[in-house]
Design a protein around this nucleic acid. Sequence first.
DNA 1: GGCTAAGCGAGACGGTACGTCCTGTCTTTAC
DNA 2: GTAAAGACAGGACGTACCGTCTCGCTTAGCC
Lengths: 189, 189, 189, 189
Amino acid sequence: MSEDQPRRRSERARLAILQATNDLLHENGLDAFSIEAVAARAGVGKQTIYRWWPNRAILVADALLDRDDIGPVPPRNTGDVAADLSRWAGDLAASLGSPRGAATLRMLTAAAIESPETSRRLHEKFSGPLQELATARLAAADDLRTTPGQRRHAVDAIIGFMVFRVQAHQDLTRRGATEMARMVLRGLR
Amino acid sequence: MSEDQPRRRSERARLAILQATNDLLHENGLDAFSIEAVAARAGVGKQTIYRWWPNRAILVADALLDRDDIGPVPPRNTGDVAADLSRWAGDLAASLGSPRGAATLRMLTAAAIESPETSRRLHEKFSGPLQELATARLAAADDLRTTPGQRRHAVDAIIGFMVFRVQAHQDLTRRGATEMARMVLRGLR
Amino acid sequence: MSEDQPRRRSERARLAILQATNDLLHENGLDAFSIEAVAARAGVGKQTIYRWWPNRAILVADALLDRDDIGPVPPRNTGDVAADLSRWAGDLAASLGSPRGAATLRMLTAAAIESPETSRRLHEKFSGPLQELATARLAAADDLRTTPGQRRHAVDAIIGFMVFRVQAHQDLTRRGATEMARMVLRGLR
Amino acid sequence: MSEDQPRRRSERARLAILQATNDLLHENGLDAFSIEAVAARAGVGKQTIYRWWPNRAILVADALLDRDDIGPVPPRNTGDVAADLSRWAGDLAASLGSPRGAATLRMLTAAAIESPETSRRLHEKFSGPLQELATARLAAADDLRTTPGQRRHAVDAIIGFMVFRVQAHQDLTRRGATEMARMVLRGLR
DNA sequence: GGCTAAGCGAGACGGTACGTCCTGTCTTTAC
DNA sequence: GTAAAGACAGGACGTACCGTCTCGCTTAGCC
């Protein structure tokens, strides 16, 4: 995870735990998820889990965020902000709107509500980068004279739209997100 | 809650349970919340809770939604859509952005993730009406030629913005929401 | 049961309850026996049971003792005490040694341990009469000069032998009981 | 209890549980006895009880039989069978006839009726040894020509007498038991 | 290459809460 | 006007996990 790992930590155990966590989460959902089941599935003592993860929520977040399929991707810069960001939003929607992506996002949200530390970590690894990347792309648009506040509003509306749709179990399609982003950006002008 | 209640249900018990649930949620948070504590606090047998609420998530949602401070309010119609909806958004932000409102929204979100039925109920009582009211106001604006799809995008961006801010533990102020709504509506042309 | 029955008592309910109690006891055993199950099986309200039987143990005893297959039978008097009483013991053993008789005796014993009132009732209806009938037969034996104390010892040894065998899940046959009784009576001489 | 105990069982917990069980049984009786109360009194988790005792009846039997005051004692052999066994019976009656002894015997009986396994255990630790010790003493009497069947009858009559007296809440004195045993042995010739 | 401390699997422990079942009382409905 | 039906407060059941705590046993990393 981080670089300050104690020397003697067993990589085998770490990977088995993360794998078991991901498997169990997607098999049974967050609610039926238990440390004991992870230990059994990973062939690991419970203490080994508690040694490295202070609680369930953080283990869940770590395991879900450890996967690459939801890593924040920067928008392109082709010179056309609206095109770049709406495409970026479309890609994000395709990822978050898939069954697995939506399940992951929901479980991450719930885990974040359980513990503030998890919330921090989720923001640091996911929503924070998302906001920064999009805001930066907006700031780089010479033809758009925007204040930092406006940029944050626009970006959060775009991200919030998708988060809300997923949580409300409503459609989230690439096409819908693209159009919505276009609309929001039009409002920035 | 609904009219088809089996006869002979004790109103005294029902109210005590909802009250105890609200109290305990706001005192200790969703995580430390237990049916057993509700029963003890409400002076009620556990079975009486289980008789009427099938699980924890639904009890939580019922109790939180049973309060009036988060009931969906319709936007005004003064003839100026942008003014009406941005004011509406500002009011909503003031409610959801308050410590209690934010806590309630977060707990509702978590409860909705726990059980699909709760999610349905939350949408039916909260996010659904919110979407409908705002969409209707938009549709009633004669000077705005919008498609239903556009209206839903705009409304969901506005609501999503607020939901996202609350869940990410970021500022949600009346002023910010007002500006954001103005911006999104500008994008609608 | 007794003569002081309130006027309006429903005979239909009373019989259904005793029948259901007997059925359930022999189907599932004393442990799994519950008033609620009796009410359901008998098609009777729980209150109707509680109205006439103060607790589970007494209901159990009443229902089991209400059957005729374990009613105390007096020994004959052919003039030969040893023959009469050993035959009487053999008959009793045949009854108590049968699967159903043994089950009944065991459940009665357990019920008696649960409540002193039940114990009293069991003695009054079952063991008491047994003791008295046998003691009386002994006392009526002219050729046997026995003190009341001796008679009680002999009778209790004979009855105790059978009770003990049943409770220890050991054989109790007509033949064994006959021989044992003969032996005990020989000792009286 | 036995030697094949899985490693790492906590002796502290085991003793505390047996002690609490004994205390609670004699304070409130078998009926009001609950595993939950044992756990609380012993300062132990419920699971620790369930881990080692499969059910209430076996715990009760284990705890009651774990005490030394009812352990089976062999009869002496002074050469006079009648004297030895009647004395032995008197001693047993003194023990079982005392308030505590009688209470223990009644609770053991009830526990044995609850579960066959408990019955087995009770016989193995209590009534079985009693039968064997007395039967052996009888068999060792050179002046008494008895068959095994006769010996078992005599012994069971003696033991049964006491068991029956205790269960019927009737007097059980050293003196009465002594006389009764003498009488039965006289019948053996 | 051997020593030693850490990390490890296993799993018992004191606890909390679960969701179910039953108790004995009370109230309502219907025959 | 009684009795069925069944809700109620209470409380124990037996189970599942929690997070902590030993227990031996590897095994890495330094002498």
